[in-house]
Nucleic acid binder design. Structure first.
Length: 230
DNA sequence: GTCCCGCTTG
DNA sequence: CAAGCGGGAC
């Protein structure tokens, strides 16, 4: 495959450890990152969907005060959930979460399922959320594909990022190859933190301090953006 | 893969 | 207003 490529396995291992070391230092400490409670993590991922962290944190904390466990959530009516979640926008999410709580309580015996197929049957649980829950709650080796991880991957490998990239097998395989299967949770945290702190989208990325810079194909100043890719 | 669209933030 | 995100239709 293409990515095995320009970089040897040994180099990939170096890249991983470099990223993990950076991740330890720059770890963003959020409440849902300090627990392995699958219910808390699922709630966090659902509330984070297309929503900024800063806006979501107080809502998340209040939400878990009201519904500390799944059974409490499953007993709540929709109107009640509206009060907790309305300020986050994306209001259909409230119905989806209500429905998901019912399914979890009654079809999954009140437990968050660990296998991906089951997770994907839950309304509002996308590929990303299913993978995130499995990785962060159980440290399963899951790849997370979103605009952030796709941006890093594209820059790293010198691949143009297009609208289709987030669903392309090519980008997914690249991340599968890069993923540290010994430390999937730490690897993905580091990747997400790198995207938010260094490998920026709107502003120029902080390449000078990037732990991946010696492997990265992102055009440096003075060079033209690369084109070899697709 | 491409286009589109609803929703949100800057 | 523009741009970003991500799910869905095609």
């Amino acid at each position: 495959m293409a990515i095995s490529l320009a970089i040897t396995l040994q180099q990939i291992e170096l890249l991983r450890s470099s990223l993990l070391e950076w991740g330890k230092i720059h770890f963003r400490s959020f409440p849902w990152r300090l627990t392995d409670n699958p219910y808390h993590i699922l709630i966090a991922e659902i509330l984070l969907h297309r929503t900024q962290v800063r806006q979501m944190i107080p809502v998340y904390e209040n939400f878990l005060r009201c519904y500390p466990e799944l059974s409490a959530l499953a007993n709540a009516g929709k109107e009640e959930l509206q009060n907790s979640l309305y300020s986050l926008g994306l209001h259909w999410r409230i119905d989806l979460l209500h429905e998901t709580a019912q399914i979890l309580q009654h079809r999954f015996a009140g437990k968050i399922p660990r296998d991906k197929q089951s997770l994907l049957t839950l309304p509002g649980v996308s590929q990303y959320i299913a993978a995130a829950v499995r990785c962060f709650a159980w440290n399963e080796p899951e790849v997370l594909l979103d605009t952030n991880t796709v941006r890093i991957t594209g820059r790293l490998l010198g691949w143009e990022v297009k609208d289709s990239s987030r669903r392309s097998a090519r980008f997914r395989q690249a991340l599968e190859t890069l993923l540290d299967r010994e430390h999937p949770r730490d690897f993905n945290y580091a990747l997400l933190d790198l995207a938010h702190l260094f490998c920026l989208k709107r502003q120029p990325p902080l390449c000078g301090e990037c732990p991946l810079k010696i492997w990265c194909n992102y055009p440096r100043e003075g060079e033209k953006p690369d084109e070899h890719s697709q």
